[in-house]
Design a protein around this nucleic acid. Structure first.
Lengths: 228, 228
DNA sequence: ATAATAGTCTAACAATCATTAGATTGTTTC
DNA sequence: GAAACAATCTAATGATTGTTAGACTATTAT
């Protein structure tokens, strides 16, 4: 009895390690970034707006919970999500939070209410229309993320380049912009810009994690092993 | 830009509230207990082997993350899971932990390896056999939990009463015992006792949470409002 | 070699958390 | 009414965290 209690405590303790990893806003942001594809520490730090030291400390925590893996690539250390299950967990804890926490629902409504936001669910018809060319699905994330994983029939046009590449877009068709997911603002900005320029644009508040699309592991850049 | 960063931080912060709630072993244990059905604070404290004060503090945390609801019933305060989504989350974080953490896999193997453990997956055939009466599905949890929710065609026989009620069980048939889930030891103990007594018994390491069966809310005991 | 870059490790601070004790609020029972 | 019970609140403790700075380790570029 004494003994079995100890085993039981041990079990819950292990699960709590995952919860602890998910108990910090910055760590969650890092997980979401990693769901877009593998990244180096300093890329992660820049994109999450934190110092490299802090990013390194948080990544260490994530690694100790076995949620991410690392690989040394030359001068850089590249982090990636350990598993498709981690991305699924991120979507699942986020959806529970949206279900339970009114504060979150309200903050989210602020983001997506004004521009014509596309409600999810009709993924199939979206893909069909994109395939036929009736609409354009635009991936406005950095191109490295597009290359790691993207929605079917999506076209890459990073938000930074959007203004200068407007000529590439067809005038008559609806443009559906997406980015990293519902908490990412790039697609919102893109839609605002496009509308301003006379395009018909709507915002899809989902990304590859929500669609269950796993990023591919880019082969370690073997470059030219300078010496050796 | 300054402003949008603040909104983003706010979003991750909200999700982290859920993670924080799930970052303590005892809170996870309380969630699992509540997945079995609503319970008073002192029942929860007793079943999780902690003081009522500590249970109350942990429940306060769970309530502030909106994962549980409370209702005053006479002298007691009854807690219940807010939502079916909370039970699903418990199953999902646990399965991620089992997937990622070797330590957990090993501790779990210790529990279920020795007795003939039933591997899940064939739920349908289990239900069919139980319906036909080819085997007996035995719920060895306290009867209040059985009444709140139980597996199809299960029969209630709390572990405390098992020894004295062996006569009620058929001799020829296989007995499948289950309890609160894979981290609960009651079914393991039951199987050991049954085998010792000459029954053919196997252990199903799942419970109502894993099967997606929501506990029913027992109507507030209106008792006799003594005065009023 | 030397310098620059990318990242980790250690130590230290403040902030937060788990846990317990003591006092307090309702509710029921006598 | 008084006593017993169920639960919470407050305050205090020690232990863990988040965060930053400084020293350190690889790797690449010059």
């Amino acid at each position: 009895m004494e003994n079995s209690r100890r085993i039981k405590d041990l079990l819950y303790e292990q699960v709590a390690r995952i919860g602890k990893a998910a108990s910090s806003p910055k760590r969650l942001e890092l997980i979401e970034l990693l769901c877009q594809g593998e990244k180096s520490v300093d890329t992660l730090a820049r994109e999450a707006s934190i110092s490299m030291k802090l990013a390194s400390a948080h990544l260490r925590e994530l690694r100790s919970a076995r949620l991410v893996d690392t690989e040394k690539q030359g001068k850089n250390v590249v982090y990636r999500i350990a598993n498709r299950a981690v991305a699924e967990f991120w979507v699942s804890i986020r959806s529970l939070a949206e279900d339970r926490l009114v504060e979150l629902k309200m903050a989210l409504a602020q983001l997506t209410s004004d521009p014509g936001a596309l409600m999810p669910q009709d993924r199939e018809s979206l893909v069909k229309a994109a395939k036929k060319g009736d609409l354009v699905v635009l991936d406005v994330r950095p191109s490295a993320e597009y290359e790691a994983a993207h929605l079917p029939y999506a076209q890459s046009m990073p938000i930074d380049e959007l203004r200068s590449r407007l000529a590439e877009l067809p005038q008559g068709k609806t443009i559906v912009a997406y980015c990293r997911g519902p908490y990412c603002l790039m697609a919102v900005d893109a839609v605002n810009l496009l509308k301003q320029q006379g395009f018909e644009a709507i915002h899809l508040p989902e990304g590859v994690a929500e669609w269950g699309i796993a990023p591919v592991r880019t082969a370690a850049k073997t470059a030219y092993p300078s010496s050796l």
